[in-house]
Amino acid sequence: MDAPIGHFDHAVPAPDALGDLIRPVADAVRHWSGSVPADQIVYVDTDPRWADTAVFVEHYGRELRRQSANCVVVAGRRGSETVLAACVVLSTTRVDVNGVVRRRLGARKASFASMDTATGETGMEYGGITPLGLPEGRPVLVDPAVADLPYVLVGSGRRRGKLLVPGKAFTELPGAVLVEGLGVA
C-alpha cells in the first residue's frame, strides 16, 4: 500500500499491523469506533534511530514537517493534586504549557511530565508517545490545526514505526478536546 503522506518502504492499514503495535495502541485500533474507519489509520515501519521529529523529517522527507504532530504528556498541579493530560500539537509549534494548558487543567503550575512519568503512565516508549491508546480518563488536548489536516504523522507508541492518522480522528479519541491556542510558534 502507498502511504497517504510521505514515502515509506512499508505502509499497512493499522488493523493489519497489530503485532507491530504495543498493546494499548493495538487495543485502541482493534476497538476503534470513530467515524473514520480504522483501516484509514496507517502504520509505517520506520527506523527507531530517526524517531525524533527533526531527525525523522530530515531522513523521510522535509514535507512531513508540516504534517507531523507531537504528543506530549503534561502534569498540572494544584496543591497536592496532579492531573496528567496529553497534548497534541503540530511539530512546527510548541505546547503552551504555562498558559493554555495550565488554565485548561485548572492548575497553579503545569510542566512537561518527566520521562519516567510519561512512559510509566502511558505504557509507551519515550519519543513514540501517541494519543491512541492512552489510559482511560486522561484528557487529550488537541490543537485544531492538527484536526484540520487530511493526514497527520504521529508516534506509534514505540520509537520504531509511526502512525498516519486522518486529522478528524484526533477529535474522536476518548477524552479529546479541541483547544484553541494549544500550539504556539
Score class of each variant (00 low, 15 high):
V179S: 02
W32A: 01
F8S: 05
E125Y: 05
I41N: 09
R49Q: 15
L21I: 09
I5P: 01
S68G: 12
G6A: 13
Q40L: 12
T92A: 08
R160W: 12
I41P: 04
I5F: 06
I41C: 09
L182R: 02
D116I: 06
H31A: 15
A54E: 13
Q40Y: 11
D27I: 03
V73T: 04
V154N: 02
A3F: 04
H10Q: 10
G76Q: 09
E180W: 03
L153G: 12
V44C: 09
V184A: 08
V101N: 04
Y60V: 10
R66A: 15
G137F: 04
D52N: 08
R65M: 15
A14E: 04
V55Y: 12
V88L: 00
E125T: 06
R62I: 02
R94N: 05
R23Y: 12
R23Q: 14
G106Y: 10
I22Y: 08
R30I: 04
D96M: 11
S114Q: 01
L64E: 05
V101T: 07
P24C: 12
S91K: 01
V25T: 06
R49Y: 15
A75G: 07
N98H: 10
T117R: 03
P150W: 09
A26G: 09
R159T: 15
S33T: 15
V152A: 10
V57T: 12
D27W: 03
V165M: 07
A85P: 00
S91C: 03
P37S: 06
K162N: 14
V74H: 06
V36R: 01
D20Y: 13
V152T: 14
E58H: 14
G76W: 12
H7K: 11
L134R: 01
L182S: 05
A145C: 00
E125V: 05
V95A: 07
P166G: 13
G19H: 02
P135V: 07
V140W: 07
K162P: 14
A113G: 03
V184D: 09
L141Y: 08
H7M: 09
G167W: 13
L134H: 03
V184M: 05
L182I: 06
E136L: 03
K168D: 13
A118H: 04
G99H: 11
R159Y: 14
S33I: 08
